[in-house]
């Protein structure tokens, strides 16, 4: 935390100081940059927008898309929409949890994977479906899950060696 570069937060804030309803867009921009909302950001935002830190915590814990911990290199967004549910996304979720040894909302110890569930990705034709850093993986089966993560892990091992 100590070596976090907070200059970017101040940069973002200059553009929003006089805007009404700026809090959510500010938080979104901060998170886009840091992958989460770092603690020092809250005080800076509070001062710039003249909102109390407790109000900011209220907003950032109310909405599911704000995170207070850094994300892993890969964010897995597993769709838990109704179409995916009736096509077995719950067992897919359990399989990912077993495979990576983490629960929803957690990050693996090597900081590679963060597992999240989303209400609906809207790609129901390829249900059950998940997104890993912007790439879609559809028609998931328990076998496919093994293959996808084996491949990603192998790729990371390789790049770590070189």
């Amino acid at each position: 935390m100590s070596n976090l570069d907070i200059t970017y937060i101040s940069q973002i804030l200059t553009g929003y100081k006089s805007m009404k309803g700026a809090l959510i867009p500010v938080l979104q921009e901060v998170q886009n940059h840091y992958t989460y909302i770092p603690e020092p950001a809250v005080d800076l935002i509070a001062e710039a927008l003249n909102i109390s830190p407790s109000e900011i915590y209220g907003v950032l814990t109310f909405y599911t898309q704000f995170y207070t911990q850094p994300e892993g290199k890969y964010t897995i967004k597993l769709c838990r929409g109704t179409a995916c549910h009736v096509k077995g996304s719950k067992s897919i979720l359990e399989a990912i949890e077993r495979k990576l040894g983490i629960r929803v909302g957690e990050t693996t110890k090597d900081d590679l994977f963060t597992l999240r569930i989303v209400a609906c990705l809207g790609a129901c034709a390829v249900a059950p479906v998940m997104m890993v850093n912007g790439d879609y993986y559809g028609e998931l089966t328990l076998e496919k899950i093994e293959g996808i993560f084996d491949e990603l892990q192998a790729k990371e091992c390789k790049s770590a060696k070189t």
Binding site: P25, L27, T64, Q65
Partner: peptide
């Protein structure tokens, strides 16, 4: 205006609060 992930914000008065930058 981009939402931040809350189903209840589809409800009119919650949506309005969200646009105002508050809890929905």
């Amino acid at each position: 205006v981009k939402g931040a992930g809350a189903f209840v914000c589809g409800e009119e008065t919650a949506l309005i609060r969200s646009i105002e930058g508050k809890m929905g």
